[in-house]
């Protein structure tokens, strides 16, 4: 159920970002720009599956708390403040954790032969 809601929200990204209705979702999407070149890519279903499996592999290899912070931010689109409230971490800690994981994700995708 939450997956459907998330994907609908993502489909409405332009709508959301234009209207600034969900700033957390907009900024979390903006942050993901660090991991990619920004060019549109048209991949086959098999290539998409490969990327998704690689992301899963990357996440499973992270420490649990880092993994959960990443998922709260980029899957649930939680704001930094909400993540801080859940985890008890400071904003600067959460921001630096996210920055470090985005950097690593990019590196990892590239190491797996994925054009980012």
């Amino acid at each position: 159920m939450s997956r459907i809601v998330r994907n609908l929200a993502l489909k409405k990204y332009e709508y959301i970002s234009a209207a600034k209705r969900n700033p957390a979702a907009v900024t979390s999407l903006e942050e993901l720009g660090d991991c990619v070149s920004g060019t549109d890519s048209i991949g086959t279903e098999m290539e998409k599956r490969h990327i998704e499996k690689t992301i899963d592999k990357f996440l499973w290899r992270l420490e649990e708390e880092k993994r959960n912070v990443f998922i709260r931010r980029y899957w649930y689109f939680d704001s930094i403040e909400t993540i801080c409230k859940y985890t008890g971490f400071s904003q600067s800690k959460v921001k630096s954790m996210l920055y470090e994981m985005r950097r690593k994700l990019k590196k990892y995708l590239e190491s797996e032969g994925i054009k980012v």
Binding site: D40, I55, L59, I71, Y74
Partner: peptide, 29 residues
């Protein structure tokens, strides 16, 4: 790849990862 495509891929991650992150403890405590 653009950020929206990456977000879509993240959206299709393993269900177990999503469930695990649903209720996260207060790590600081």
């Amino acid at each position: 790849m653009n950020k929206k495509q990456l977000s879509e891929h993240i959206g299709n991650m393993d269900d177990r990862l999503v469930e695990q992150a649903e209720k996260i403890p207060n790590y600081r405590q």
